[in-house]
Simulated assay, not measured.
Amino acid sequence: MIPKAAQMLGLAMRARKVISGEELVVQAVRTGQAKLVLLAADASANTTKKVRDKCAYYGVPCVTAGDRYALGHAIGKEGRVTVAVTDGNLADSILRLLT
């Protein structure tokens, strides 16, 4: 994961604009809260398919960013596989850095 993107993700976490955990992220995508979903490269095939399919159906950008430890470290939690950003401006900034 790019250090600047990790910093932005940490900022979003401190602003309480981050949802982490597979089920909570999928629920946020369904309800329209999620503006960007970050998926760990080492997520299981089942989780990857489930999250990518939900994001594609609801039109939410989904980006693979680092492994579970990099994502967890960026938000200050232990090993997260999926993370959703709920603020549009922060999501756009992170997406620009990662693509």
Rank of each mutant, 00 (worst) to 15 (best):
S20E: 11
Y69E: 12
A12E: 03
V25Q: 01
Q33K: 14
E22H: 12
T64D: 04
R16V: 08
L71P: 01
Y57T: 14
A40G: 06
D53K: 14
T48M: 11
A12P: 05
D53T: 14
L24F: 13
H73P: 01
G21F: 08
A43D: 05
A40V: 02
T47A: 11
C55Y: 05
T48P: 02
Y69W: 11
R14V: 08
V26E: 09
V29Y: 05
A40W: 01
E22F: 11
A40L: 03
A28K: 04
R14D: 14
E23Y: 08
K35A: 03
G72Y: 03
D42P: 06
V60T: 10
G10L: 03
L71S: 02
V18Y: 02
Y57I: 15
Y58D: 06
S44E: 15
T64N: 07
C55E: 04
G32R: 12
V63A: 00
C55I: 07
G59P: 09
G66E: 03
Q27Y: 10
G32M: 14
V37I: 06
E23N: 13
G72A: 10
K50T: 12
T47K: 05
A6S: 14
T31G: 10
Y69M: 11
M13A: 15
K35G: 01
Q33H: 12
A70W: 06
Q33M: 13
K49L: 15
R14H: 12
C62E: 05
G10Q: 04
V51T: 09
V26C: 09
H73W: 12
V25F: 00
A65T: 04
Y69P: 00
A43K: 01
Y69N: 08
Q7W: 11
L36F: 06
R30M: 14
A34H: 03
Y57L: 15
A34Q: 05
A12T: 07
K49I: 08
A45G: 08
R68D: 07
K35D: 01
A28F: 10
V26S: 05
K35E: 09
V29D: 03
A15W: 10
A12I: 07
A12D: 04
G21W: 05
D53F: 11
G66W: 02
A56T: 12
Y58F: 15
Q7P: 01
A56V: 07
L71F: 06
K54F: 15
V25I: 10
T31Y: 09
Q33E: 14
V26F: 04
A15M: 14
R68V: 03
R30G: 09
M8H: 07
P61K: 06
R30E: 15
L38C: 05
A65Q: 04
R14C: 07
A15F: 07
A40C: 05
D42G: 06
V60F: 03
H73S: 14
K54T: 10
Q33Y: 11
M13C: 11
E22Y: 13
Y69I: 12
A70D: 12
D42Q: 08
L39G: 02
D53M: 13
G10P: 01
K49G: 10
V26Y: 02
S20C: 12
A65W: 01
H73F: 09
K50A: 10
